[in-house]
Design a protein around this nucleic acid. Structure first.
Length: 598
RNA sequence: UGGGGCGUAGCCAAAUGGUAAGGCAGCGGCCUUUGGAGCCGCCAUUUGUAGGUUCGAGUCCUACCGCCCCAACCA
């Protein structure tokens, strides 16, 4: 018989549709599905509401996938992109454009529903006037400091403003003058009249409008008063007919205010705010403030540096949008705060790349090999498969000649037990080419191996021996004469800790991994790589997934390593060497409050 | 110490009173012209703790413990 019971009881209201099957759905989709089944709504409208004051990051990707994803799952449903641009001092057109690019790239489409909270400034103003007329809002002359001081504490109630009892007429007059620009920034604010003793601080006469004589990136100087988030957001949702307004957990406390405003005013709709836990990924941060520090302090090349957790950066690094969507879908949606291991994201990146990346050969750290019984000056073209996952991708010719490069790591003078690659006297297969046997090791004065002399078996052309003999190892190679020199960039995580502590003495500086970028200057690529386009997904066989970086030009190839290949050899090698696991950065724990993390 | 949210494996996450899905990671094996990919198997006698209700509890009740959020004229 309680009100609560009525609120949560959807079944009775159903038009005999039967119960919705919500098994396995996350809690947000469960609510949406039940609302549809009960007839509360016959379609769903969601919205993704970024503030254009920075670039989108992996955490936003989750929200985007949720907001747009849910809309796409139901008939006649849609998701709006609405820029929450109520603070002209931090927002810029550059970000408006960047955010649209990111969402499109991720694979979502808002159709005709590109909106701006600033489009509603006039309506919002009208709602504010209505609130004043109802005696539910007043103009406060207190300074910011005074308001803060009178707010009370978490355990003590606040005290009412001395201006709280102004007449409606006076409030109307003052608010009109605020809008007309008759007062300075901070001189006055419009506040809701709710309850200074409310246990939820957000309900203690929250500020609705403040004066900011700033030029807005869209409305210019038309306004000098701007609505606060709490006032603008719920009303914008209502104006757009949003059915389910999804946001992160820190807004739970704001829900009573969201509902209060919509209950006090006559609006076209009363959307339901639903909060879910934000996405955290190990070794990444999602605080815009800290991200800006990382960029401004020069720890990275920019917002799109492949080590950044931003969407532009993941794009430049070579993460396919499908992988990001798969990842978001795999981590789920719940209210429990969590820290997803980076390995999870990388898994989805590899999973997609394995299917789409063209295979190529490249030698990162070259060791010269001379095939002594291969005629000088001769060369030939061998066929190499472009993708074992996609027969339609065909083959390409790869030039072979007497002098080759192989990976230094693929040779050991004194190999351990399970090393299957080249060693003195040992025979291996050069991928797609021939079996070769190492006959001599050439060293320089310092004892460094500088060259290998080998012989090849002409009968093994293509990689198979007619006599059926097997080799244990297959290594990649590149013809020295035909190779293209390139720069290859390898990345480690930008932060050394799983959960970087940004509040320590050194802040971001102490948290960043100073060895997160490794530049390899003279990698040798097979000729086909000279034609790869910027952004193209590649797998350098046996070494990893790469893509052509935007820094590349006609005469310079730069590759980014997107992800390594799973490397079981590295594991067994490490195991037999008894290497201890990497030490972790000790300066963790004592996390302090993180703000500005949306 | 006020209000709110949350505790299921190393990391995520399902299970709507009926006997703990799935994924990642890890471990073992098969296969392999990438030590890749793929395939097979193993990995929670138990859901923060302690009581209680019930034939039956991760689910309901009580108490306790722990973590997170809230005192911007930010969003």
């Amino acid at each position: 018989m309680s009100a609560d019971e009525n609120k949560t009881n959807h079944e009775g209201a159903s038009g005999g549709e039967g119960e919705a099957n919500t098994s396995g759905l996350d809690f947000v989709r469960t609510i949406v599905t039940e609302d549809l089944a009960s007839g509360k709504h016959d379609h769903v409208v969601t919205r993704f509401p970024p503030e254009p004051n920075g670039y989108l990051h992996v955490g936003h990707a989750k929200a985007i996938c949720l907001d747009f994803g849910i809309a796409a799952e139901h008939a006649d449903s849609r998701c709006h992109l609405r820029f929450d641009d109520t603070n002209p001092s931090t927002e810029e057109t550059e970000y408006v454009e960047g955010i649209q690019d990111d969402i499109s790239w991720l694979g979502f489409d808002w159709g005709e529903h590109l909106h701006f909270t600033s489009d509603y400034f006039h309506q919002l103003y009208g709602y504010a006037v209505t609130l004043i007329e109802k005696g539910k809002a007043f103009v406060d002359d207190q300074s910011a400091d005074e308001i803060r001081a009178n707010q009370g504490s978490l355990t003590e109630p606040g005290t009412e403003s001395p201006f709280r009892t102004r007449t409606i007429a006076e409030n109307l007059d003052l608010f009109t003058k605020m809008k007309a620009g008759e007062f300075d920034d901070g001189a006055k604010v419009l506040r809701a009249k709710i309850d200074m003793a409310a246990p939820v601080v957000a309900m203690r006469d929250p500020i609705l409008y403040r004066i900011q004589k700033k030029t807005h990136h869209r409305t210019g100087d038309a306004w000098c008063i701007y609505p606060m988030y709490d006032f603008a957001h719920c009303l914008s949702d209502a104006i757009e007919g949003i059915t389910h307004s999804l946001c992160t957990l820190e807004f739970v406390d704001h829900r009573p205010l969201y509902d209060w405003i919509l209950d006090e005013l006559e609006t076209p709709a009363h959307p339901q705010q639903i909060e879910f836990a934000r996405l955290n990924v190990s070794h990444m941060i999602t605080s815009k403030r800290a991200l800006r520090r990382v960029v401004e302090d020069g720890h990275v090349m920019g917002w799109d540096d492949p080590r950044m957790p931003t969407i532009v950066a993941m794009r430049r690094r070579g993460y396919p949008p499908q992988a990001i969507r798969d990842f978001c879908s795999a981590v789920g949606v719940a209210k429990r705060e969590s820290l997803i291991e980076l390995a999870n994201l990388e898994f989805h990146v590899r999973q997609v790349l394995n299917k789409v990346a063209m295979r190529r050969m490249a030698v990162l750290r070259p060791l010269k090999v001379v095939i002594e019984n291969y005629p000088e000056g001769e060369e030939e073209l061998l066929d190499a498969v472009n993708s074992p996952e996609d027969p339609d991708a065909g083959t390409r010719p790869v030039p072979f000649s007497r002098e080759l490069y192989i990976e230094r790591d693929d040779f050991m003078e004194d190999p351990p037990k399970k090393f299957f690659r080249l060693a003195p006297g040992r025979e291996v297969r050069l991928r797609y080419a021939y079996f070769v046997t190492c006959t001599e090791v050439v060293k320089d004065a310092a004892g460094e191996v500088v060259e290998l002399r080998c012989t090849y078996d002409p009968a093994t052309r293509g990689g198979n021996a007619p006599d059926g003999r097997k080799v244990k190892g297959t290594i990649h190679w590149v013809s020295a004469k035909h190779a293209i020199a390139a720069e290859v960039r390898h990345y480690e995580t930008l932060f050394v800790d799983e959960e970087p502590n940004l509040d320590g003495d050194g802040g971001v500086f102490d948290a960043v991994n100073s060895e997160s970028l490794e530049v390899i200057n003279k990698a040798q690529l097979e000729p086909a790589l000279g034609e790869a386009a910027v952004g193209e997904y590649l797998q350098l066989e046996r070494t990893g997934y790469y893509c052509v970086d935007t820094d590349s030009s006609a005469d310079r190839v730069v590759l980014n390593r997107t992800a390594t290949l799973r490397d079981t050899w590295a594991k067994t090698a490490k195991k037999s060497a008894g290497n201890p696991p990497k030490a972790k950065n000790p300066n963790k724990k004592n996390k302090k409050k993180k703000k500005d993390s949306e």
